[in-house]
Computed example of a mutant assay.
Amino acid sequence: MRCPYCGGDDTQVKDSRPTEDGSAIRRRRVCSACGGRFTTFERIQLRELTVLKRSGRRVPFDRDKLVRSVSVALRKRPVEPERIERMVSGIVRQLESTGESEVPAEQIGQLVMEGLKGLDDVAYVRFASVYRNFREAKDFEAVLGELSSDPAPE
Rank of each mutant, 00 (worst) to 15 (best):
S89K: 05
D121H: 09
Q45T: 12
R126V: 14
D21G: 07
R27Y: 14
R135P: 03
V51F: 03
V70W: 00
Y124Q: 02
E48P: 02
G35A: 13
S23A: 12
P151S: 15
R135K: 15
N133C: 04
V122W: 04
I84C: 02
A33D: 12
P18F: 06
T11C: 09
R68H: 09
S129V: 12
Q110M: 06
V67E: 10
K53V: 09
F140Y: 12
E136G: 09
G56C: 11
M1D: 05
I84K: 06
E48G: 01
R26I: 13
G35I: 12
I84G: 05
E102V: 02
R135S: 15
S32T: 14
L111T: 07
Q45M: 07
K53I: 03
S101A: 14
I44N: 00
G22L: 02
G36H: 15
E96H: 02
V59F: 00
E96D: 11
A123E: 03
E154A: 15
F38K: 08
R28C: 13
G8Y: 03
L144P: 01
A128P: 00
Q107T: 14
M113D: 04
D120A: 01
A142V: 15
D120V: 04
V51A: 05
G90M: 10
E48R: 15
L147E: 03
K53F: 01
K138W: 00
V130C: 09
E82C: 04
K14W: 01
E114H: 13
Q107P: 05
E85D: 14
T19I: 05
R43S: 01
D10K: 10
V59H: 00
N133Q: 13
E154G: 13
V92I: 01
T11L: 00
R17N: 08
L52A: 14
V51D: 06
P151C: 03
N133H: 12
V13D: 05
G99H: 13
C31H: 04
P4H: 11
C3Q: 04
I108M: 01
P151H: 10
Q45Y: 00
P104G: 14
S16T: 15
R29Y: 08
A73P: 03
D21A: 12
K117D: 09
D15K: 14
K138H: 12
K117F: 12
S129F: 04
M113I: 09
L49F: 07
E48A: 07
G90V: 04
L74K: 04
M87K: 08
A105Y: 03
P104M: 10
V122P: 02
V88Y: 01
G36V: 02
F134G: 12
Y124E: 04
Y124L: 08
R17C: 07
F61T: 10
L66N: 09
V59N: 03
S89C: 07
V130G: 06
S89I: 02
L119Y: 04
F127R: 06
R29Q: 11
S129L: 05
Q110P: 01
V13R: 02
F140R: 05
D121R: 10
Q110I: 05
L66D: 07
Y5S: 15
Q110L: 10
S97H: 03
S23N: 09
R17A: 08
K53Q: 10
L52N: 05
L66G: 09
K76Q: 11
E141L: 14
R68T: 11
V30S: 09
D121L: 11
